[in-house]
Amino acid sequence: MERAKRILVVGSSNTDIMMHVPRNPRSGESLIIRDQFTGIGGKGSNRAIALSRLGADVQFCCKLGMDAGGRAIALAYEREQLSTELILYDEQLGTGTAYVLIDDNGSNTILSYMGANDSFNRSDIARLTALLPRFQYLSLELECSLSLIEELMHQAGQLELCAIVDAGPARDIALSTFRNAYILSPNETEAAQLTGIEIIKEADAREACRKLYESGCGNVLLKRGSRGALLYDGAEFLQFPAYPAGQVLDTTAAGDCFMAALTYALTLHSNLPRAVQYANIAAGISVTRRGAIASLPWRDEVSAACARAEQEGYLQ
């Protein structure tokens, strides 16, 4: 009997402080921000909520501080009907915080305080790895303890889990860590930091993908923002243009939405190219809205957009 297609998301959970700025400040410069608001984010949190809204069978493991931010986040997960069974708490460190600068073009720059996200200890890791056989898909990123990521990737290989890794934010981690990943997916900035290859031309992007592929992963999926995504499977490159769902207002959480939708599509037996298209469509919706959680679409919205995309010839 085929194992249930359950997804375990492990990653960060943050309080987001969003600030709208005319542009990124220069060194030594002070800028007046136009407005700010506080929300819930974190790369893991965004992926887990996006998967839940898409209808996936998902469990989320994160670590919060025992503070007001942590309590607010846990309550928000309950409202989203996302299980809090695997949430851990740190008694010393506070809940992670992300400071998000959003410019007039909707592009964002993020400064992260890791806090409890970086405090997974041996006991936490042992508890989590013991639960891995319950799942078929493992969704990871690098905004939490690297020792946790390394052990989970090792166990994924032992259990033959389908590991899908968002390679952001770029950290000092050996590429060999990703040898058991089915998909390794950085954006261009992260790919450049991980490989040392500055991506200016198309040839640079392909060279970076080849170097990342040498980690031993199954596929490299380079997220390219408004230019879509580039997939390399070790033999050929496939380019997937972004899907224009409307005016771009805010790109916060778009990459997380993309990764969640990609994983969800794969659980439905979509082939990888089709899953990338589905992910582009979901991310295309998210950038038309402001905020992190507020931007994440529901399954019916993505299904309707897919129907339009098929009529337009985007979805093959």
Rank of each mutant, 00 (worst) to 15 (best):
I32L: 15
G246K: 03
L296N: 09
I183F: 02
W298Y: 14
A254F: 04
G284Y: 00
L249N: 04
G196K: 00
R308C: 09
V9P: 06
P25N: 11
T263D: 07
M114N: 12
A275Y: 11
T195S: 10
S215F: 08
Y137F: 15
G115E: 11
G65Y: 12
A261H: 06
Y213Q: 10
L175I: 14
Y314A: 12
I102R: 15
G42S: 06
L159N: 05
I125P: 00
L159Q: 14
S30F: 08
L148M: 13
A279G: 03
G41P: 03
P244I: 00
S30H: 04
R179N: 06
R34H: 13
V165D: 02
K43H: 04
G55E: 09
R206V: 01
D35F: 09
G234H: 05
T177G: 11
T263A: 09
N46T: 03
A203Q: 11
E198W: 11
N180M: 09
Q59N: 15
D204P: 02
F120W: 07
A208D: 06
Y264K: 04
E78Q: 15
G55S: 05
S83C: 03
D256M: 01
A229E: 08
S12W: 08
C217E: 05
F37R: 10
E301D: 09
E29F: 07
A130Q: 13
Q277A: 02
N180C: 08
S45I: 01
R224Q: 15
V276Y: 07
S226C: 04
T177C: 05
V248W: 02
Q247V: 13
C162Q: 12
A305V: 04
S52I: 06
C257K: 01
L93S: 13
L88I: 12
V58K: 05
I293Q: 08
K201A: 11
I197R: 10
G96T: 14
G284R: 01
S112G: 06
A126H: 10
R34V: 07
Y113V: 12
A205K: 14
M19Q: 10
T189A: 13
R53E: 06
G196N: 11
Y243C: 03
S52M: 05
A163C: 03
V302M: 01
A245D: 02
F178D: 03
S176H: 13
Q92A: 05
I164A: 08
P133L: 09
Q193F: 02
V21T: 13
T267C: 00
G228A: 13
A245H: 04
I164S: 08
I7E: 11
G218T: 02
E207P: 01
C62Y: 10
Y182T: 08
S30W: 06
M114G: 12
M1S: 14
F237P: 03
I110N: 02
N14Q: 03
L272K: 00
V248S: 05
Q155P: 00
S112W: 00
I164M: 07
L8W: 11
I281H: 00
Q155W: 04
G115I: 11
H20G: 02
V165E: 05
I73W: 07
A48Q: 10
A292R: 01
Q239T: 13
R171T: 06
T195H: 09
A50F: 06
I200Q: 12
R6N: 07
L131R: 13
A98L: 04
P22Y: 09
M66S: 14
L140T: 08
E301R: 01
I200V: 15
A191G: 09
R290C: 05
S145Y: 03
E188Q: 15
V10G: 07
P25W: 12
S139I: 14
T195E: 08
Y213H: 13
G44W: 10
S303P: 00
